[in-house]
């Protein structure tokens, strides 16, 4: 893919759920373009369709109509295995409910996407450790999720999301289950990753969480009702503005953060 290709292009994306006799329209035509290196917050009330959008952008669900190009690849018409490959290599997903394997340790959870890439064991461990380190979680490597706090679990999930160096980091209410201190911590990690050039789309219903991003898209009743940049005075955001977004992915150490 060319460096200039937008990470996300959607055109008139629709999603209809066939309910009991009634078809419920969750998305009524979302058209959105996200460039490389952007940090986008999608905001909306509950029921606005933002979670549905997150699932479709993350290739966890398929749209009913419209087009979706992820990193230049049209997702429609892809087979099951190709979709799995896209989820594996191009998308890192952070869930509200973490979705870590309960019986596996932190490092095993982070390694999981690499297993399905066929990465050899030693390299897998090495890269998983690097990802854990980049979210400051190396010391939890042998803990299981039930031995960790919500904030740390979400950081392990974040490490899992970035371990494959995906084109898109997608977060669905990543702070929804966290207290405010942990939320700050996780959001700081997002900001650092974005500063390092990573493209982030974050779904949230909280205005102060959305304010940490650099661009805000507001959704209501399955349609985009607002799309504007966030002017921020925060130092992190200022630092991000100085970084060249498109070139960031070509750095030899993509997981590393500016010291």
């Amino acid at each position: 893919m060319a460096a200039g290709t937008p990470v996300i292009v959607t055109r008139q994306l629709t999603k209809t759920y066939a309910g009991a006799g009634v078809a419920v329209a969750a998305l009524r035509g979302i058209s959105l373009t996200v460039e490389r290196g952007e940090y986008l917050a999608v905001m909306g009330a509950s029921g606005s369709g933002k979670s549905t959008l997150a699932h479709i952008l993350g290739c966890l669900d398929l749209p009913t109509g419209g087009r979706y190009l992820l990193d230049g690849v049209d997702v429609r018409g892809l087979g099951e295995d190709q979709l799995a490959r896209i989820r594996n290599r191009k998308i890192g997903f952070v869930f509200q409910s973490f979705n870590l394997l309960a019986h596996a340790t932190a490092i095993e959870n982070v390694e999981l996407p690499l297993i399905y890439q066929g990465v050899a064991r030693a390299e897998r461990r090495h890269r998983a450790l690097a990802a854990l380190r980049s979210v400051g979680g190396e010391r939890w490597r042998d803990h299981r999720p039930n031995q960790l706090s919500g904030g740390t679990i979400q950081k392990v999930a974040l490490a899992r999301a970035i371990v494959t160096d995906p084109a898109l980091l997608l977060a669905d209410e990543p702070t929804g289950n966290l207290d405010s201190a942990s939320s700050d911590d996780v959001l700081a990690s997002f900001a650092r990753l974005n500063a390092a050039g990573r493209t982030i789309v974050m779904i949230t219903h909280e205005a102060d969480v959305a304010a940490r991003a650099r661009r805000l898209v507001r959704i209501r009743d399955g349609r985009v009702v607002e799309d504007r940049p966030i002017s921020s005075e925060r130092p992190v955001a200022a630092a991000v503005a100085a970084a060249p977004p498109a070139g960031a992915r070509d750095q030899p150490q993509p997981l590393g953060q500016p010291a």
Partner: peptide, 11 residues
């Protein structure tokens, strides 16, 4: 679901 979300194929 978790495994599929991180890229496991059916096979």
């Amino acid at each position: 679901g978790i495994r599929k979300a991180v890229g496991a194929r059916r096979r």
